[in-house]
């Protein structure tokens, strides 16, 4: 049985799960954006280089 009734500890438990989820989302978004940004940059510069040679 799924037990989502935490009684008097509700605030603490939801806060802990909420913060964990938030940190995971932030880490994931930051990592993916960082990676995508430099991939684009590297490919653009490569194309520039190829165009010039």
């Amino acid at each position: 049985m799924l037990d989502l009734d935490f009684g008097k500890y509700e605030g603490f438990i939801w806060a802990a799960y909420g913060i964990s989820a938030l940190v995971f989302v932030l880490l994931t978004v930051a990592s993916l954006r960082f990676s995508a940004h430099w991939k684009r940059q590297a490919e653009q510069l490569k194309a520039q280089e190829d165009a010039r040679s």
């Binding site: 994931t28 990592s31 960082f34 990676s35 430099w38 940059q41 590297a42 510069l45």
Partner: peptide, 27 residues
């Protein structure tokens, strides 16, 4: 597993950043 996935993504980004840096200095 999440750490592994994020780590790999960040290392990939780092590799691309260095490639971009190298290309920039060549240009």
């Amino acid at each position: 597993a999440a750490f592994g996935a994020l780590w790999l993504v960040r290392i990939r980004g780092e590799v691309w950043r260095r490639r971009a840096d190298a290309a920039l200095s060549r240009l």
